[in-house]
Write a protein that binds this DNA or RNA. Structure first.
Length: 672
DNA sequence: ATTCATATAAACAGCG
DNA sequence: ACGCTGTTTATATGAA
């Protein structure tokens, strides 16, 4: 206890804060001020343009063989992926397949899953980890499919470009523009790649910001960040339509640096499928209805040229109209000959493809891990034990904004069992923690995931108040000293092993601030107890509507099983602890309490914790049992050890009053 | 736009 | 004097 304090007192408040800040900022951009957030784009672009030189312009055009080789590899990966998907993910895959065929954007999948337009957080709060996992899986599958689709297209295009150039013979390169543009493109590409990865990570981790509004906002700013489908737009030269290749390229360079928002489609020119292309649903969700048709069409139609479709040249950034194939060929040979520019474009395209390959590989790996995990225990919401090491590596491949978790991550790269459930928002969880306000049962959540939180440097999605309460209620006598509370925090959450000054202050602040925490003088000092009544009181009964939402959502998902688990979760949510003092067993609780979210507040009084005690007895200034225990008798006796009316305190508690924390698992065991 | 809940930071007082 | 504990105030942010 004391020992720690020394080291902790100082440093690191900032890190946590910063982390939160940054994350929340992002979230904000998506949620509330989507419009505002979207504006930023240009600035970055400008910077990029100036320094564009950095991009290496060297590197000769690799031989066709190389390209072929790459294609082969990529295709193999894709095939593997398909196989995996087919074998393991039958149900979700099937469901999504249709959608994926038309809808490419991630948001779509989400929309599918959450008819009610719940925010990710809400979903997290409402759904239990297993449910989230299922959702995530679905989404994952969809995303990968989409990726793959796009990937194919890219491969095809690349190939064609190369061939075309070869056909055209060798025309003299016009060096002038080539390099600069290449540099721009490459730089932009890199940036976008990073962004993309980051976003994908975020999505993965916490179903982050898949909201329609967010999708549209940030996307504009970071085109690439979104998803493969948007890649094509990268190429878009602003004024491109109808312009000669050269011109379009120039513009492209400019545009790219300036505003990433420019959008010309590369694989699927707007004109190609006027009615089909991008649609925006009423709710603002961008949807790509059937862009792929185009791409597939080339493949299928032998007579046509892959780079030619719907009377248009499909060369990246070029939308020159060509009446017929002959004219197109001519155009191709003229405008897209083997010169620096074309080479550069080709290279960029290669990078795009490579990036996609990488992405695909990662996703495949992830999928496999997920499937493995799920197969092992289909319905078991266990924290981990997954041998999967994948997460560690791919979680944050890039160095981009990682959640506060960052550094000291003690150990296991585990990911929250529930997958998005809480951690994900790992980063931003700071603010709205689920536990309190919604049904989320901290106890059950903890029970299920305590291993995770214990080892992963992830901020728990609970409020300080709920955590403190949990800590106190977990003890047999429902009372803890401040230091014991600290210890509980550090014992239960890796996250709280850092930034101690910050969160300890917060804990103290919460103890003082909330009426539900009652300080009781003790011989030994003071202990803190929980006034359950106050605790219930303090949260607004907002959950009222939620059940409906949840139902709808669930029905929408058509996850029968989920429904069950959800109910179970709800049940658990209540106060398992109260029921059996000393017993944390969620299971028991669930059976006892059919419903009632934590918060149901007044109505939910039902906690039989003391049977009568809670409601009536409490009337006086007393707070349930705990207080009594401590107040008088306790004084005499002192610790809870003997006093606890509760049953068999766990071994851990048995130990020294304060030190029980030393070890790890006392409460944890019970929980799980 | 307002209100509420929460998080964070910090100042301050009392106590051992 | 120092550190811990506890209270309080201020500010920022997200959500309803």
């Amino acid at each position: 206890m004391m020992v720690e304090s020394a080291s902790e007192t100082i440093r690191s408040a900032p890190s946590g804060q910063n982390g939160v800040g940054s994350l929340s900022g992002q979230a904000d951009g998506g949620g509330g001020g989507s419009s505002g957030g979207g504006a930023a784009g240009p600035a970055a672009g400008g910077a990029g343009r100036d320094s564009a030189v950095g991009a290496d312009s060297n590197g000769e055009m690799s031989p066709a063989e190389l390209l072929h080789f790459q294609q082969q590899q990529a295709l193999q990966v894709a095939r593997q992926f398909l196989l995996q998907q087919a074998s393991g993910l039958s149900s979700p895959g099937n469901n999504d397949s249709k959608q994926s065929a038309s809808a490419v954007q991630v948001p779509v999948s989400v929309a599918m899953m959450s008819p009610q337009m719940l925010t990710p957080q809400q979903m997290q709060q409402i759904l239990s980890p297993p449910q989230l996992q299922a959702l995530l899986q679905q989404q994952q599958a969809l995303m990968i499919q989409q990726l793959q689709e796009y990937y194919k297209k890219q491969q095809e295009q690349l190939h064609l470009q190369l061939l075309t150039q070869q056909q055209a013979g060798k025309q003299q390169p016009k060096e002038a523009l080539g390099n600069k543009q290449l540099a721009f493109q490459q730089q932009l590409l890199q940036m976008q790649q990073l962004q993309q990865q980051h976003l994908l990570n975020l999505q993965r981790q916490g179903l982050v910001s898949l909201q329609p509004s967010q999708a549209s906002g940030p996307l504009q700013t970071l085109p690439q960040a979104v998803c493969p489908t948007d890649l094509p737009q990268l190429w878009k030269g602003e004024g491109a339509p109808g312009q000669p290749a050269e011109d379009s390229v120039k513009q492209e360079g400019l545009d790219l640096t300036g505003t990433a928002t420019t959008a010309t489609s590369f694989a699927a020119p707007p004109k190609v499928s006027p009615p089909l292309s991008h649609h925006t649903l009423p709710n603002g969700q961008p949807t790509v209805l059937t862009p792929r048709r185009d791409s597939s069409s080339h493949e299928e139609t032998p007579g046509s040229h892959p780079l030619y479709g719907h009377g248009e040249c499909k060369w990246p950034g070029c939308e020159t109209l060509c009446e017929d194939l002959g004219q197109f060929i001519k155009h191709l040979n003229t405008e897209h000959a083997l010169d620096d520019r074309s080479t550069a474009q080709c290279r960029v395209q290669m990078q795009v493809v490579q990036q996609l390959e990488i992405q695909l590989a990662k996703e495949s790996e992830r999928l496999q891990a997920m499937m493995t995990h799920l197969h092992m225990r289909p319905s078991e919401p266990k924290p981990f034990s997954q041998p999967v090491t994948v997460s560690a590596a791919d979680s944050f491949p890039d160095g981009l904004a990682h959640p506060p978790t960052s550094a000291a991550a003690p150990v296991t790269p585990l990911r929250p069992p529930g997958l998005g459930s809480a951690s994900l928002h790992s980063g931003g969880p700071a603010r709205r923690r689920s536990s309190d306000k919604f049904c989320s049962p901290i106890s059950s959540e903890l029970a299920q995931n305590h291993e995770f939180y214990k080892n992963a440097d992830v901020r728990p999605p609970f409020t300080y108040a709920s955590l403190i309460r949990q800590a106190i209620l977990e003890t047999p006598d429902r009372q803890l000293t401040l230091n014991e509370i600290y210890n509980w925090f550090t014992r239960m959450f890796a996250y709280f092993r850092r930034n101690t000054a910050t969160w300890k202050n917060a804990v103290r602040h919460n103890l003082s601030l909330h009426k539900c925490f009652v300080r009781v003088e003790n011989v030994k000092g003071a202990v803190w107890t929980v006034d359950e009544r106050e605790y219930q009181k303090r949260r607004p009964p907002k959950m009222t509507g939620s059940p409906t939402l949840v139902k709808n959502m669930i029905s929408g998902l058509s996850y029968g099983t989920l429904n069950a688990s959800y109910q179970a979760a709800l049940a658990e949510s209540s106060f398992p602890l109260l029921n059996s003092p000393g017993m944390l067993n969620p299971g028991s609780a669930s059976s006892l309490l059919p419903l009632g979210h934590d918060d149901a507040g007044a109505p939910v009084e039902p906690l039989p914790s003391n049977g009568s005690s809670s409601p009536p007895r409490l009337s006086p200034p007393q707070y349930s049992h705990q207080v009594q225990v401590k107040e008088e008798p306790a004084e005499a006796e002192e610790d809870r050890r003997p006093g606890p009316p509760m049953g068999p305190p766990n071994p851990s508690t048995a130990g020294p009053p304060e030190d029980r924390d030393l070890e790890e698992e006392l409460p944890g065991e019970e929980l799980s």
